[in-house]
Amino acid sequence: MQSMYAFKGTESDNLLKEQKFLLHSLDSMYDLYLAQLALFTELHKKSKDYNEKIKNKLVKTEADKNLNYKFQENQLLHLISSNTMLQEAIANSKLNYWHLDFEYVDILFKEILKSELYRDYCIDEDSSFKKDKHFVIDIFTDIIAPNEKLFDFFEDKKLTWVDDMPVVNTAILRILRKLKLTSPETALLPDLYKDDEDLEFAKELFQKTFLNNTKFAEEISTKTTNWDSERLASIDGLLLKMAICEFQKFPSIPTKVTINEYLEIAKEYSTPKSSLFINGILDKIVKEYQADNIHLKSGRGLM
């Protein structure tokens, strides 16, 4: 969707160039994932430096005397920081910006220290891996991921990262929730694609939507005579074209799956009323296909 939207804006007719942008954008998602895990490592280092600094103070407050080491000794953060394969991947990709942009680490670390999540974590006598994992997941969900300054930082680093953040953050949470102390190092280095078919599907969907753009637009226009043309020129129109492409060019994908997927994308990226609009148009198109006995789905249980 993002790549098709970018194509619309450039008025380019070079399919290979646009497909290269698509594949580059997909690869950038993995870079964002690694950059976020590098941030976890730097926050863990920061906790050690912070504790060392307090230990070396000549004059200590009462709070300094009761220094808490739970953040420093957090087992999940240690698992991330000590993962040699992960750290090599981060180093090879040159994605650890944090030693240069240390102010973002400082901002997040201070936010964590003053949070209720941190206070509750420190007084909890449970020092299990499960408790440590819940703490890291909570600070990521409530403090790190929503931080606007961090969002601006990622936007400045690479514009394509901005729209990828919800997807990447969701993937990070899913991976962290599954982690165990006995997990192999590869657990933190998932494949970008489930298999080769995933990559081929991405390329095919882009190519076939791209090459049939005018044809799909004409089909949509016959179903939307009473709708504002601006809506069709927006992301809504683009999602409709991609859905029609799946209806016509991917016979093994059930129509219900296609519709549900694009409704979810519309809820995330378009207007509040977009999902209703898209659902209505796609439902009408599917019923016409079925009545005319065209673009039927193949495979058991498909329609």
Rank of each mutant, 00 (worst) to 15 (best):
Q87E: 04
I139K: 02
S298K: 05
I253V: 15
N92Q: 12
R231G: 09
L232F: 08
K158A: 12
L211A: 07
L199S: 10
K53H: 11
K65R: 15
K149S: 13
F40H: 13
A187K: 06
M242T: 14
R300C: 13
S221L: 12
D101Q: 10
Y69W: 15
R300P: 05
D156S: 14
T182S: 15
G237L: 05
V59H: 14
S93V: 01
A63W: 04
D101R: 07
K223P: 05
W98V: 04
S47D: 01
I123Q: 12
L232W: 08
Y30D: 09
Y104S: 07
E18H: 12
D132G: 10
D49I: 08
K180S: 12
K65C: 11
L192Y: 07
S12Y: 02
L211S: 13
E88T: 10
L302W: 06
I137D: 05
L34P: 04
P190Y: 08
K53Q: 12
N212P: 00
I139R: 02
K149C: 10
D283K: 06
A6P: 00
S93I: 06
T61E: 04
T84W: 05
S234P: 05
A35E: 10
L15V: 09
Y289Q: 08
K241P: 06
E88I: 04
K223L: 15
K249M: 15
L159D: 14
A171D: 13
K110F: 04
D163W: 02
E111N: 14
L282N: 03
D64F: 02
L189T: 04
F102A: 10
E73D: 15
T222R: 11
P251M: 08
T224D: 13
L302V: 07
D228I: 02
F151L: 08
I175R: 10
D27R: 13
C122P: 01
I278R: 03
A291V: 06
P146S: 09
D196S: 14
D156F: 08
E116I: 00
D31H: 11
S127D: 15
L239C: 05
F140M: 03
K297T: 02
S47R: 02
T225W: 12
I294E: 11
